[in-house]
Amino acid sequence: MAAFVVRRILVNIVVFILIGIGVFLLVRAAPGDPVRMMIRPEDLQEGSEGFIQARRAELGLDDPVLVQYGRWFLDAVTGDLGSSFISREPVSGLLLERLGPTVLLMSTALGIALLIAIPLGTIAAVRRNTGVDYAAAALSLGVISVPSFFLGIVAIYLFSLQLGWLPSSGMSTPGGGGGADILEHLIMPAAILGLAAAGPLTRYVRGSLIDELSADYVRTAEAKGGSPVRVVGRHALRNSLIPLITIVMINIPQMLAGAVVLEQVFAWPGMGQLAVRAVNTQDYPVIVGFALYVAALVLICNLLADLAYAVVDPRVKVT
């Protein structure tokens, strides 16, 4: 087990380095100039050209790309991902402080998605080709087809503006705070993100459970005298949920993309919001840092998934 984790971490380090190189080169290959982006067009006067040159030199942007990369890499291995071009704050600090809200949003959404998908998919599988199944299919298709930013705007209009039940933006009320306050802010974005993920997961649970229900061991459980609830819950569902671990992992990057969008809509102070601003201003260090954080998140999730397999499926041995 320990050897497995160590080996995976070593592989992941290589992946990290490659992602770093890729994103580093990509952002610099994109058209536009981060220094010009800092200056409002109306402030762009004759004399500002000198300032721009000075700032470019200060940021090292005039050096060959490989030199820039080498410099960045040597800092990065010590944990220093550089500073934002705009705020001049260290990138690691900026991202770390926003990692929590994003992880909170995503894990709540994932929990909601599973709480919807597992029961709904199970009912759809057991009562397949009945009204319940068709309703579940329509719902799944519905939440996949409606863009989440649209759902977000509708929800804000309904629950914040019209009904006044929930706050429309941010993560906590200024001056207020506390768990309940954060929860109130969390409900809408997490529910919408969770709903979008619940669609495909419900379909998956349904399909995989239908496969398991025709398995021989299910018939054995029935032949033993097990009740339908027991046969489905203790036997078929247990087996069908094991591969769900993979499906959830595959969906994480997509959920992250959804989170980036919803963080904008709900002004949720997460990494997504930071990243969008960084892309808009061509804030290279923040973009590269964001990419590395996302990669770390995905790689850690994958590692956890592999370990989870070893725990829930006795046939899997990690060595």
Binding site: A215, D216, Y217, R219, T220, A221, A223, R234, H235, R238, N239, I242, V312, D313, P314, R315
Partner: peptide, 17 residues
Amino acid sequence: IAMIFQDPMTALNPVVT
């Protein structure tokens, strides 16, 4: 009434002892 099935490879639940 108890049954014994043809294929013991698939007739037992793989994730239960």
